[in-house]
């Protein structure tokens, strides 16, 4: 009944035997102990469980673990380049006060990553649209929106610095 899946999470190779009814969310949280990805609703409605699979943001609560065989997953734990550095998105979330209880944060950051990968200089409306599937009960979203535009700036600047070098 169990299926063997081989997949990458945050660059690390994993091999797991999973039952088909196990969601990616459970596999990450329970089997791999990557608990940064949250479960806020379990039915695709809140965005807290968002991860990136092969470059696209998806709801890990609706994704069957078996279906990521051979794929590459990025979770919030894979955002920061190293132990003591933060990703510009994380940096901006911290700086702008975009984090209160923090339960929506991982999903918001992954949505931001997806957005900025596809649209490096989003305007405010585009940022808000990028978060349309993400609920937050604490912040009223304003500091999150601000964080994402701050992150966009930093990412653009570091991009152009890299290009200059």
């Amino acid at each position: 009944m169990k299926h063997r899946i081989n997949f990458k999470v945050n660059g690390d190779e994993y091999s797991l035997a999973v039952e088909p009814w196990k969601t990616l969310n459970e596999a990450l949280r329970e089997d791999l102990n990557l608990t940064g990805t949250k479960l806020g609703c379990g039915t695709g409605d809140c965005g807290a469980c968002t991860v990136i699979v092969d470059g696209k943001s998806v709801s890990s609560c609706l994704t069957l673990a078996v279906s990521v065989d051979g794929k590459s997953v990025t979770t919030v734990e894979g955002l920061a380049p190293s132990g003591d550095e933060l990703h510009p998105i994380q940096e901006a979330f911290v700086k702008t006060g975009a984090i209160q209880c923090g339960f929506c944060t991982a999903g918001m950051e992954m949505a931001a990553l997806h957005l900025l990968n596809h649209n490096p200089s989003p305007n405010e409306a585009e940022i808000r649209a990028g978060l349309s599937g993400h609920l937050c009960r604490c912040t009223g979203y304003s500091q999150i929106v601000e964080a994402i535009s701050v992150a966009a700036e930093t990412m653009k600047n570091s991009q152009s610095e890299e290009e200059e070098q």
Binding site: R29, E30, N33, L34, T35, G36, T37, K38, L39, T75, V76, E77, L79, A80, L86, Q90, E91, F93, V94, K95, G97, I99, G102, F103, T105, A106, E109
Partner: peptide, 20 residues
Amino acid sequence: PRTDAIVKARGAAAYTDDMK
């Protein structure tokens, strides 16, 4: 900045259901 912001930004803050 909040004292807990960085661990939360990293996904390293443990909520009850994260514990085993």
